[in-house]
Design a protein around this nucleic acid. Structure first.
Lengths: 246, 246
DNA sequence: CGAGGTGTTGAATAGAATCAACTCATGTGG
DNA sequence: CCACATGAGTTGATTCTATTCAACACCTCG
């Protein structure tokens, strides 16, 4: 019954192994997790403004988080892939702030926040993991922001593609290929670009033989080249901070 | 001995009142909080890559969180104002990911994370508040992202000014005036704009009589006009304090 | 006083958005 | 089964926005 490619984030918070979290915690999480069946593309998981009840994890498929600006135009705020959580902003606001929509056939699981909190009350390890999870989300959010602000369309999309590749492959997907769950328009929106620009950049990448792309199927031909284009995320662990500027 | 304008975020996490947090928790926080003396503009609080030890709160002054991209160019990721926390991304990475610098004469307080966690182990209310804090940071980060992506320079700067105004006034500062702690270049960088563009937009705002601006002193003349320009953040039930993270 | 950072302004350029047309694949109903 | 509608993706021409390069005014600080 289980799809091989299924990821159960709600039972292993933030990719924590059972050793980290403990079997007892996993058991408790299993007890409170609500496993939703797969829904069709276009299905809304929750809407902005609805009362916050649970945080969600993606098991199969993909989710987009969107907002509508003044003109009713849709703006993509984030994509959520298998193993990732969403809806965490609701904790602060008591209401969901984004609307979330399945991009393809998608299954999610829900962790009712009150119950999750109760479980955490008894398990310090879960508490620590929750903090790590939230901190990680802040980090990704900032990476995204830094990668978009003040950079060209090429750089943004190169970053996005590499980012999606890495996140997809975390679930065991092949490293050299990528099936995009979103349209060019959605991809562009999340990068602050018009759909046409997105399409043109894809063409440019093809011409420069960085990727092969037929529709939503991407094949990476020159990862180094893409990385050179993308905004480098200089996360610690390497390279000393360059102190001498001019 | 206390400066009137001082805010002590480390003693009242995320603008929580003593009633929310409880006097005992406040007392415990006071015991672990490290109150740093004021430092001059340009002082680094921590550098990207340093081992994570504590989260910080701004008491007086202002902080910028920056990253360096490939070319050594500085990119502003966030500003932190009195009452706000920064350094939270370190929780996930065990290292700070941004470098943080005082923009003016600034005093911060540190909450050593391990100790904070220990205190939280004994106080569910503090745990809840911590989760709210982190969630709020994710929310702000997303707001920022949504406000920047795919919008004009006018819209971005209008948003930024209104945002700064609100966050400043939370500490009791006047609502109609604003003393910017950062340069045009820094403001622009955080919005993904060149310094010249920032300057020009300021001129435009002056001409349209939306603001008065002499140097870093801003006076708001037409808030409604600015809001019309800025990207509207349509948050449903919005309530409490805002927080930002490095 | 001069130095250097900050802010402003102008002219030229490059980059992305917009408007528009067209292809293609898919799906629908007649 | 085919005519047609639909949405996604591409491509071209044009317009507009923001960057870049450059020069200069201003202020503070040594």
């Amino acid at each position: 019954m289980q799809d091989q490619s299924e990821v159960s984030p709600c039972l292993a918070l933030d990719a924590a192994t059972p050793e980290v979290l403990g079997d007892d915690v996993i058991e408790r999480l299993r007890a409170i997790a609500v496993q939703h069946g797969a829904v069709a593309a276009g299905t809304r998981i929750f809407r902005a403004g609805e009362p916050f009840r649970a945080i969600y994890g993606v098991r199969i498929g993909a989710i987009k988080a969107i907002r509508y600006d003044g003109t009713g135009e849709e703006q993509v705020v984030a994509f959520h892939l298998p193993g990732e959580f969403f809806g965490l902003t609701g904790i602060h606001s008591d209401h969901y702030v984004n609307t979330t929509v399945a991009l393809e056939r998608t299954a999610v699981c829900g962790l009712p926040y009150q119950r999750l909190f109760h479980v955490a009350n008894e398990h310090p390890r879960l508490r620590r993991q929750l903090m790590r999870l939230m901190s990680g989300v802040i980090l990704t959010e900032q990476d995204q922001y830094a990668a978009m602000a003040g950079h060209t369309a090429d750089a943004r999309l190169a970053f996005l593609l590499l980012d999606l590749r890495e996140r997809m492959s975390r679930g065991g997907a092949p490293q050299d290929r990528l099936r995009l769950p979103m349209t060019r328009a959605e991809l562009g929106s999340s990068a602050g670009l018009a759909p046409e620009t997105t399409s043109r950049v894809f063409q440019q990448f093809r011409r420069r033989e960085l990727i092969e792309a037929s529709g939503r199927n991407i094949r990476f031909l020159d990862l180094a080249g893409l990385r050179r284009l993308a905004v480098p995320l200089t996360h610690p662990g390497h390279g000393t901070g360059r102190t001498t500027a001019a």
